[in-house]
Design a binder for these strands. Structure first.
Lengths: 137, 137
DNA sequence: GTGCTTGCAAACGTTTTGCAGACTC
DNA sequence: GAGTCTGCAAAACGTTTGCAAGCAC
């Protein structure tokens, strides 16, 4: 899977570098959301010289290729994850609890937005904020 | 309406200052979304010495009082508006078009999130991104 | 006069950029 | 060797903060 993406990069005239291989390995190693900083830390555990700005540049590139997506879960840094595990998020504004919401949760919003406004929603890019069950009491 | 809020401030031990009066006047003058910077520009047209940081501090204060809310319409600065005109937003990731979405659009998402996760959504705080009808063709 | 509020400058956290050298192909 | 990618340092961006002076009450 890492190799597939590297092939994709090469196919577009890109080079295969340590930074890219390590970043992809980190991304594929765990399905969770991680910030650029967290990914940098994981990559740097194996290749200490890889700079945070390189991580950002490669995350951009991977996003352009459609391999990953980033999401905003609230104020603060963006979270990155593989595009294949796409889903929305419910984030508690009070305690920060983050729930993954299957696409299907947004189906009816999706339908109404389409009918009323011709608007195709992408529920992945920004989280839906609110109060979790514990905090809404 | 401006005076009502000033009264509210005073009731909580706060002071009524030029900065606050001007900021409220700007907020009430138009129902649109404006960034802190835009509001500062409007205020400074009348009272040039009022500093951006004062705008931020007062926006915080007004938000704490429930008079205004802020929303994130995408990357970039937050947008502020009166709490009375609360609504969600649909923002096109491609052209930036911003549609105001009545609360009612989110009713069914709201219901499902509540039933499935005990989660009370607040569709106002973050916009729902996607593609507008022109850009999705 | 008490103490909330302000202007200013400086810091913040996240992300982007310019550049010269290093590496992949 | 051509051209992409990297590390580094510095800047950009929106926002927050510490402080001493200023103003509302």
């Amino acid at each position: 899977m890492v190799e597939d993406v590297l092939g994709l990069l090469r196919a577009g005239g890109g080079r295969v570098t340590t930074a890219r291989r390590q970043l992809l390995e980190a991304l594929f190693a765990s399905p969770g959301h991680r910030t650029a900083e967290e990914l940098a830390a994981e990559v740097q555990a194996r290749a200490p010289d890889i700079h945070l700005s390189t991580i950002y540049r490669n995350l951009d590139e991977l996003e352009r290729l459609g391999v990953i997506v980033h999401t905003h879960l609230g104020h603060g840094p963006a979270a990155y994850h593989l595009a294949t595990s796409a889903h929305g998020h419910l984030v508690c504004e009070r305690c920060g609890l983050t729930l993954e919401a299957p696409q299907e949760l947004f189906r009816s919003l999706s339908r109404v937005a389409e009918n009323r406004f011709g608007f195709q929603i992408d529920p992945r890019h920004f989280a839906v904020l609110g109060r979790c069950s514990a905090c809404s009491r």
